[in-house]
Design a protein around this nucleic acid. Structure first.
Lengths: 340, 340
DNA sequence: GCGACCTGCTAAAACCATTTAGCACTAACT
DNA sequence: AGTTAGTGCTAAATGGTTTTAGCAGGTCGC
């Protein structure tokens, strides 16, 4: 690690040419009329000196830094949604970009700060990500940069990436119906009557809509719907317990609105001596880590976080794609549904 | 979001002073002799124009960008270790810095690329993080920047942040001993005889050493040690199943080397009709998400990922602290240990 | 023999800040 | 009166790149 950086001037000097020539050659400008010979000399000199252009200096001139701002509420921070960042990192890497990651905890002041911070660093664009898909407040930007919303929506910005929850919801229903279930399916997490008019995040609303639509198409009704506001295991546990007390063995299958609820429900079933899938089949959403830890494994409609992250960055870099991109939610087949 | 950036020259012009004066004033240089009046005018102009210095331009001159490179194998990527990044982000934010996050998947070529990429962007320093603490290979750096290893070690770099596994190991033993256990404790995950000479990561080795040391001090022996190479739930399940068959009810407590093993073990126990903590007490390590999902909750010695991330960035910014920083592993008390 | 055009290259400006060196002027001291 | 010291400020260099404008010399056409 010797002292000074190697600069373009060093390369030019070594090649016996001007920095202009060196710059043009190294950037592969097509219209230039520099000789073959000059090309060779510059390339050689750059290689010998192990020259790396200074991104800051270049950015100053060109306004492009190959750096993307990734501003999120609690994405990196949260085990759950870290796939978003993983996908974004991958895609950024693939196109020679780098991610400046900031987290705001959803605090509007920190959000403004974060935006300033990334704009100060001349990012080529900003991805705003949220852990739970929602309408995101975005303070006015003092500069015009491409913006993509990841797992979020905002009426001033059209470009967003969301999971295709509607189709996902339909798929979950089909998993049960295809396995022969019809009566006795319990919906765990949401009750249409009780939660009438209450706000659920954009995507969850679509998930539920897809479920109901497909149930209707099959001419099916849930045996019951248990409203659960927080979707953590303990709430699934208590909710399921209540339902078991109420309906006993007439419950044949559980459609849980996420894996953590399903996990909690499975604990309640285990306590009641009910086994999955022999007695009750279970299907759910997210493909959270817990789904693979369960025994038997939980069949679930996956939240395609990584792919979403990739799509967001791709969209950010390609001006052609725009609008709302829906990413497919694939079924992850495990052993929690019994064929009837 | 109007067209052009506001530059220092704009501010200076508006204040009727030179850019030199504006720069000095805005940077609060102490030795300057500019009038009170000039100060006020510049400050006012900057505020009115909403001036933000261009970090790239400044960095070009000062070599400081208030940006830190966070280069990791699979930290952001992995649900498990994302606390490391969270802590680092927090601490960076607290000191007005920003994190450039790159992931290498542990691939040496990508690692070199990542280093080049962050150096190209003139970072003020680099944090190298790994998901599982290990000796990390670091390619030679072409420039002299501060380097801190997070959850990793490397013989050329002294500054590193690690969990205090030795003490953590001792604590796990004490949790059981204090609750009245002595005979019948099973060590799940490692067998001294079988794994003799095999490599376990640096920190896991210390964890195990701490456990053994404390057992010896108490004059205790494990009833058995089950060697398990991969520490996922399924391995805990099969391992525990084997042990139950071998020792039956003479196992009184399980000391599992991580929470996922413990979770797997709990599944085996549930199948055998053994309940935690009534029949067998369990203690473990990591404070993985799964530990709080279990029912009853799993008492565990936490991996202090967030604090480690914070310490790493603090260390990076403060030349005074150096060497190997051990971060305390706190006990997270839940309900998996019965008082005897 | 003269303008037009091509070829191969470079000087200098621009990007936006920080920093060094120093100017012009007043006040104080010998 | 002449030197020194202090005050309040600025011109210009600097950092490393890209880009615009253009120079010098040759060839071609007529």
């Amino acid at each position: 690690m010797p002292g000074k950086r190697v600069t373009l001037a060093d390369v030019a000097r070594r090649a016996g040419l001007s920095t202009t020539a060196a710059s043009m050659i190294l950037n592969g400008r097509p219209d230039t009329r520099l000789s073959r010979e000059a090309h060779d000399r510059v390339i050689a000199a750059a290689a010998e000196l192990d020259y790396r252009p200074n991104v800051a200096a270049r950015g100053l001139r060109t306004d492009r830094t190959n750096t993307i701002g990734f501003v999120s509420d609690v994405v990196a921070t949260t085990r759950f949604a870290s796939g978003l960042i993983k996908g974004a990192l991958e895609e950024a890497h693939a196109s020679g970009h780098v991610l400046l990651v900031l987290e705001t905890e959803g605090d509007p002041r920190r959000e403004s700060e974060a935006i300033e911070a990334v704009l100060d660093r001349q990012v080529d664009g900003i991805v705003f990500a949220t852990m739970r898909a929602r309408d995101l407040f975005i303070p006015p930007l003092r500069q015009r940069v491409p913006v993509v919303l990841l797992n979020a929506t905002n009426e001033s910005y059209a470009d967003s990436v969301l999971p295709d929850e509607h189709t996902g919801g339909r798929r979950a229903v089909d998993l049960l119906v295809d396995a022969g279930f019809g009566d006795g399916i319990l919906l765990l997490g949401h009750n249409a009557v009780k939660e009438e008019g209450l706000f659920r995040s954009t995507t969850v609303a679509r998930r539920i809509a897809g479920i109901r639509e497909r149930m209707n198409e099959h001419g099916l009704q849930f045996i019951d719907e248990e409203s659960i506001w927080l979707w953590e295991p303990e709430h699934g546990y208590t909710g399921m317990k209540r339902m078991l007390k109420k309906h006993g063995r007439s419950i044949t299958a559980v459609l849980a609105l996420n894996d953590r609820l399903a996990f909690g429900a499975s604990q309640a079933m285990a306590e009641a001596g009910i086994s999955i899938p022999a007695d009750i089949s279970v299907v759910s959403f997210d493909n959270d880590e817990i789904a693979s830890y369960m025994r038997p494994g939980l069949t679930t409609v996956a939240l395609p976080h990584e792919e979403m992250g990739r799509v967001a960055v791709r969209m950010m870099l390609d001006p052609a794609t725009s609008g709302e991109q829906l990413v497919d939610m694939p079924v992850v087949q495990r052993e929690s549904i019994r064929e009837r």
